[in-house]
């Protein structure tokens, strides 16, 4: 078949021939059986491609759908599960929500939420407080000996005081000469205008304690005013040690607990150690 005729057939099948040419071609087909057979072959080939195109198109939609399914599978399967749980299907295909289940789960969720936010809402905390930590009497003296140290005056105020008597007292205290310090401190404390009274009281109290005069030590240390914040905390610690020395373990334990529970107290760790806490 000549190329020209093949082109004519294609144009005819494409509907691209003008009406006169189309009529002329159809007349030619009616008389030329070879041309008619060729035309039918072209039609059959085109139909074959149409079939293939349909199959390809269908496959393209299917493959793309599979990709989309992969992306949505988890979400859709979760929805399926929720539907199976919360929807009751009837025989006629309709469905109704299982309100009782929804309400039950909702209530449970609310309870869990409340318990998470306010655990004591339903069961107030009735737990008994831990037994008081006490210092065993037989260990009181050991504890005192382990923990008692005279004041470390390094870094405290008053070292370069112009009052030479006070400076001398500090020096003697630092040197451990408590017997010599006490008369000096007595005379200083007798002066009502003396400015370093809290420190002097503390030094006197610790010296008395070191000497074993617990009653006088207790009285002296008790005079350190709370306004002298840091020195007052030292005084409390030494009072507690004084109780230990006196083997008054109940009073010692009460005070030590107070110190141990205050994390800002200078002697909280030592107090905890005496009480046997970590």
């Amino acid at each position: 078949m000549e190329n020209e005729q093949l082109t004519l057939i294609e144009q005819y099948l494409d509907g691209a021939l003008p009406p006169e040419a189309r009529a002329a071609f159809e007349a030619q087909v009616a008389t030329d059986s070879a041309l008619a057979a060729e035309l039918r072959l072209h039609e059959a080939a085109r139909a074959a491609i149409q079939v293939q195109a349909l199959l390809d198109r269908n496959d393209a939609f299917y493959q793309r759908g599979r990709q989309k399914l992969k992306q949505r599978a988890h979400w859709w399967k979760m929805l399926d599960l929720l539907e199976r749980l919360f929807l009751q299907r009837r025989a006629d295909g309709s469905s109704r929500i299982r309100w009782a289940l929804v309400a039950g789960i909702g209530l449970s969720a609310a309870l869990i939420l409340i318990l998470a936010v306010r655990p004591n809402w339903f069961a107030p905390d009735t737990a008994t407080p831990p037994p008081p930590v006490a210092v065993p009497r037989e260990k009181a003296i050991i504890a005192f000996n382990t923990h008692f140290k005279r004041m470390d005056l390094a870094g405290t105020l008053g070292g370069a005081d112009s009052d030479t008597l006070y400076s001398r007292a500090r020096s003697l205290y630092a040197a451990g000469a408590c017997t010599d310090v006490l008369p000096i401190l007595e005379s200083l404390l007798a002066d009502e205008q003396f400015e370093s009274r809290p420190m002097a009281l503390l030094l006197k109290g610790t010296c008395l304690l070191d000497a074993g005069n617990t009653d006088a030590a207790l009285e002296t240390l008790g005079q350190v005013p709370p306004a002298a914040a840091g020195l007052y905390q030292h005084a409390q610690w030494y009072i507690a040690l004084t109780y230990l020395k006196m083997e008054n373990t109940a009073a010692a334990a009460a005070l030590l607990r107070e110190l141990a529970e205050n994390p800002r107290h200078r002697h909280s760790k030592e107090a905890a150690a005496v009480l046997g806490k970590k």
Binding site: L54, N58, F61, Y62, G65, R66
Partner: peptide
């Protein structure tokens, strides 16, 4: 899901 996807692809085609 696979059969449903096939039915949907057929419908689109």
């Amino acid at each position: 899901y696979d059969d449903a996807n096939m039915a949907f692809s057929d419908a689109l085609t």
